[in-house]
Design a protein around this nucleic acid. Structure first.
Lengths: 251, 251
DNA sequence: GACATTACCATACACTGTACGGAAAGGAGG
DNA sequence: CCTCCTTTCCGTACAGTGTATGGTAATGTC
């Protein structure tokens, strides 16, 4: 009967996460009381908390407490916890340097991998997130573009580029989860790698049967599980770049 | 002063998860009332719930309700939720067929990948778990052994076997998370892949800038993101086996 | 029959995300 | 200035979560 019922685009509640990602600080609707916070502050507080204690410890109440604000006030800035995490992810992706486009594909790919690794090291909670649906934010897309661009420079086109990018991503994520994720878990739970295995050392003498697991035993005896070296980033990089090179010349 | 204070190994509370994994049904201490359940029933109920609704929906109260038992009764059988999940994982790994050792390495590796894929498809909640610390259960170790054995048959030794196994695992997990995880998320949240992207379609017209993301745009225009085919299991297998073959002859 | 052992579980506590509705701040229009 | 509308802030509440505690009752051994 009255005004047209268009969705309240400008209200905080009505803004979807995509708008928050691409237009984080819209011109202040001049009416109500001044906001005490900015979206950026909320996101930064979330990042600080996740860096220190992990994603599972990130709660709306704790973020609010860190900002000296009531818990429900956060919902003025952010639709909910999931969206906050998406914003946190895109925000830290801004730290991911893009390689200079003048370099060759190998250097650019190496730079990409090292930057990602460093990012995961600074923000291990990124590894907890299912990376198959990364937020569609500007910084995330910038980083994806830089990966695609490096692979295009290597000669990949079309779907081959996507396949090569997935290859790089999955190796990187797998290795990072194995190494950095373990470190982070050790730090947050206080159970170190050695303590974890030490507590399970009785397993090896009590239950492990070297006749049931001959190959595993052989690898163990050959020192194949003394991983500190096998799982190094440099070694991963060597294998990764060579594999990409081979796939490149294969097409 | 009285009896030696050895840890109560035989009581339910004192049994660690390793003991539950390897010795799930110890001889009944004949004293108290008969248990109404078995550990196996508890684990199966957990698996059924996770299959139907995902790991986030798995709660002690719901598992208990499915078994028509009070929530706290579960703690007679299982130390806690985390341990229940570990037991669930090892239990479903029993479904993972081990390839006949007579076959060549290529067939065995293909069998391994297809079996893992089918397992993830039946139990997508496996993909939610951080696979870098799989439970040390008999079935998990059997599967790992079969992978190592296939790679040993391909000529890998020592740390090279571990590196190759990691390569296979990470590609497999990455692809499975991208495909199956998305399917499962769509099923449990009711938001299909198309609906998810449809809801974000305004993004492409509103925010996406083809000049900022030229390579991404070019791939898109070449149809590189029409993934249904690019992400197929067969294609993954081809690439995977070829890559292993090349790494094999490279050493 | 007394006692030791064990299974079962009601209650409670400390958390979580967030729906709801009220209070109050502050600019805009009269 | 006063009123009104918009917007921020947030106390309270609800439906969940994992699990610590401690009581009750069932069962075997002595």
């Amino acid at each position: 009967m009255t005004a047209p019922e268009q969705p309240p685009e400008s209200t905080a509640e009505g803004r979807r996460v995509i708008d928050l990602l691409w237009n984080p600080e819209p011109p202040p609707g001049s009416r109500g009381p001044r906001p005490r916070l900015t979206l950026g502050q909320v996101v930064e507080a979330g990042i600080a908390l996740a860096d220190a204690a992990g994603l599972t410890q990130l709660s709306m109440r704790k973020v609010a407490a860190a900002l000296d604000v009531g818990a429900m006030s956060l919902y003025t800035y952010v639709p909910g916890r999931d969206e906050l995490v998406e914003l946190m992810i895109d925000t830290v992706y801004a730290e991911h340097d893009r390689p200079a486009p003048g370099l060759g594909w190998r250097d650019r790919l190496e730079s990409f991998v090292r930057e990602s690794w460093a990012l995961y090291r600074r923000h291990p909670w990124l590894l907890d997130h299912n990376q198959s649906r990364l937020p569609l934010g500007p910084n995330v897309l910038d980083v994806e573009e830089s990966l695609y661009a490096a692979l295009a420079a290597a000669g990949f086109t079309g779907a081959d580029t996507v396949a090569a990018a997935n290859f790089v991503r999955w190796q990187l994520l797998g290795a990072a989860r194995a190494m950095i994720g373990d470190e982070a878990e050790a730090r947050s739970t206080g159970v170190s790698y050695e303590a974890y295995w030490g507590a399970r050392s009785s397993f090896w003498t009590t239950y492990f049967d070297s006749e049931r697991y001959p190959t595993t035993t052989a690898i163990w005896e050959a020192g194949g599980f003394d991983d500190a070296s096998a799982l190094s980033l440099d070694r991963l990089l060597d294998r990764l770049l060579d594999a990409v090179d081979r796939a490149r010349s294969a097409t």
